[in-house]
């Protein structure tokens, strides 16, 4: 917890509040070690969001792949025209 406060540059109560919300939705786990609280990120909880966005990303990747090919062709044409000007 102290590490997080230092890293984030936020006040301790604010960090506690964020962590509480993250714990409630299952994105972090907490463990008590003496007076310290240790938080662990539960990455697999983020997977549904990751998958959700990935599917959307994929359609863009397809279009951009086709755009790459078109740009190669336009670059070739431009070089061709450049040579003609010389």
């Amino acid at each position: 917890m102290n590490d997080l406060v230092t890293q984030l540059g936020l006040a301790q109560p604010q960090v506690s509040k964020h962590l509480r919300v993250l714990r409630e939705v299952g994105l972090v786990d907490v463990r008590h070690e003496g007076r310290q609280r240790m938080y662990r990120l539960k990455g697999h909880s983020l997977k549904p969001i990751h998958d959700w966005v990935k599917n959307y990303e994929r359609t863009w990747n397809e279009s951009f792949g086709a755009l790459d090919e078109l740009l190669e062709e336009l670059k070739g044409k431009q070089e061709g025209e450049g040579r003609n000007d010389e």
Binding site: T59, E62, L67, E69, L74
Partner: peptide, 10 residues
């Protein structure tokens, strides 16, 4: 040019 890339293979 849009016609050549936007829809990709969809």
């Amino acid at each position: 040019l849009i016609k050549r890339w936007w829809s990709a293979n969809r």
